[in-house]
Design a protein around this nucleic acid. Structure first.
Length: 424
RNA sequence: GGAGAGGUGGCCGAGUGGUCGAAGGCGCACGCCUGGAAAGUGUGUAUACCCCACAAGGGUAUCGAGGGUUCGAAUCCCUCUCUCUCCGCCA
């Protein structure tokens, strides 16, 4: 969430930027500010009362210490009203704080000035288009779900039998290819200076709140009722939450972490032909990269992450393009997001395989993730993350783009991992 | 799942109702000392919020979390949570 002090001091900018992302409830800002004023007033009153009470208590303590019981008892009598007043203001202040908080969590991050105005994914700006060739497939080229069947790589029906639709089951070389991709991505991230993490796949409510999944998107996450835990929709959640409630030193920045996890998404309400095969599934594997960075350098980090991802796609020899998300498509927590799309040649579709974002201090504020600067002052760090990469669709495009009459050719870089060069 | 023990500042560790945000030690920072360093020595060393100029200064809250008793709670009571030990179960 945004910092209240920032909103207070930069109201006009905040309003302007929120408009840029099409945020409708702009009146919330004024409500927020006035509620916060009430809160401050009540806090002041309460603190004065507390100070009074503390002083009296101290005096009573001293009197008892000196054996002056009667005087002490007399002083006790004077505290009567104080107590009930304190209770009153305490509960009022509690309500004030809750109100402010409830509003604050509804306000999305402010977009970067470069974010184009727009309502939906159709208004996203092509930041970098593909200038190379597209795979030249035969007329009878198959979509990946057919290829998966033909070569017995993925059994969607079995997955549906065991769990439900959208839970693919990989077999044999199909499974190995998946594992190869995960290993490849992790190794590349490590070369890029990211520390590998294998985090828990379920998180508690605090963690889900910290990165912004709650309270907004609980409908997107699987929820383990009996234990009050959420299945992670992305490794971003557990990995970023490592630093929840932590103050790091400036010298430790940037902190660069990577991790493989399966990702679970309910994707409620998504049906139809465009979700066939691996295009949209409830469980998929992903390697995520995360950075915790100094506020002055977070955009540099974002660039660096974009390059890292481009590199992966080059190595996999996949045609891709980069989109700059428009205000309407920008995630609630994000300030600036680039999406990566890979061209899946048999479907003749661009598939989103990565999303890289700078959250500025939006997540850090929720997480209480701070660092101590050179002057000894603590301030919020910036967080960023990106998929590097999301597997299911990468997998799909590899199958489709690399199909030949002799079988599916495995990209060179993956062969050390798969142990085979071709699926036939 | 059952029984027991325990969660105090960056770390260790004292503190069972009164001036305790918290002794002492370690660590860290700065200074003195030194040719330099170690040792020694001095000072400082949490976070959030409020008043105020995001200064100085002052106030409030925080000793796992939440609630309660009390004029007053790290200290007493209740609930939750986490860690450790033993038993059970188990990859």
């Amino acid at each position: 969430m945004l910092q209240l002090s920032f909103i207070r001091e930069n109201k006009d900018t905040v309003l302007k930027r929120l408009k840029q992302r099409g945020f409708k409830q702009l009146d919330l800002i004024d409500v927020l500010i006035s509620e916060d004023e009430k809160r401050r007033k009540n806090q002041q009153l309460l603190e004065d009362l507390n100070a009074k009470r503390n002083k009296l208590s101290k005096e009573i303590g001293q009197l008892y210490g000196q054996g002056k019981r009667e005087e002490a008892e007399k002083l006790k009598g004077e505290t009567g009203n104080l107590k009930s007043d304190i209770e009153k203001f305490e509960s009022e202040l509690g309500e004030n704080k809750q109100k402010v908080f409830d509003i604050l969590v509804q306000i999305p991050n402010i977009p970067h000035e470069s974010v184009p105005v727009g309502n939906s994914d159709e208004d996203n700006e092509v930041h970098k288009d593909w200038s190379g060739d597209f795979p030249n497939l035969a007329e009878d080229a198959l979509p990946h779900w057919e290829l998966a069947k033909k070569y017995d790589l993925i059994d969607f029906e079995l997955g549906a039998k065991i769990t439900g639709s959208g839970f693919p089951l990989y077999k044999g070389k199909g499974s190995k290819l998946q594992r190869a991709l995960v290993s490849f991505f992790l190794d590349e991230a490590e070369k890029g200076g990211y520390l590998e993490i294998l985090p828990p796949f379920l998180v508690n409510e605090e963690s889900a709140f910290g990165t912004g999944q709650l309270p907004d998107k609980e409908g997107q996450m699987y929820y383990a009722n009996a234990d009050d835990l959420y299945l992670i929709p992305t490794a971003e959640v557990p990995i970023t939450n490592i630093y929840r409630n932590v103050i790091v030193s400036e010298a430790d920045l940037p902190i660069k972490l990577t991790g493989y996890t399966p990702c679970f998404r309910r994707e409620a309400g998504s049906y139809g032909a465009h979700v066939r095969g691996l295009n949209r599934v409830h469980q998929f594997d992903k390697v995520e990269i995360v950075q915790i960075q100094h506020p002055d350098k977070s955009y540099e980090s974002l660039d660096q992450m974009v390059i890292h991802i481009e590199n992966l796609l080059h190595k996999l020899e996949l045609p891709y393009r980069i989109l700059r998300l428009c205000g309407g498509d920008l995630g609630f927590t994000s300030n600036l997001t680039f999406d990566f799309e890979v061209f899946s040649a048999a479907q003749k579709r661009w598939l989103e395989v990565s999303s890289v974002s700078n959250f500025l201090s939006f997540q850090a504020n929720r997480l209480k993730l701070r660092f101590k600067d050179q002057n000894g002052k603590t301030q919020l760090a910036h967080t960023l993350n990106g998929s590097a990469l999301a597997l299911a669709r990468i997998y799909a495009s590899i199958l489709e783009n690399n199909q030949t009459e002799e079988g599916i050719v495995i990209p060179e870089v993956l062969r050390p991992y798969t142990g085979f060069a071709k699926i036939d």
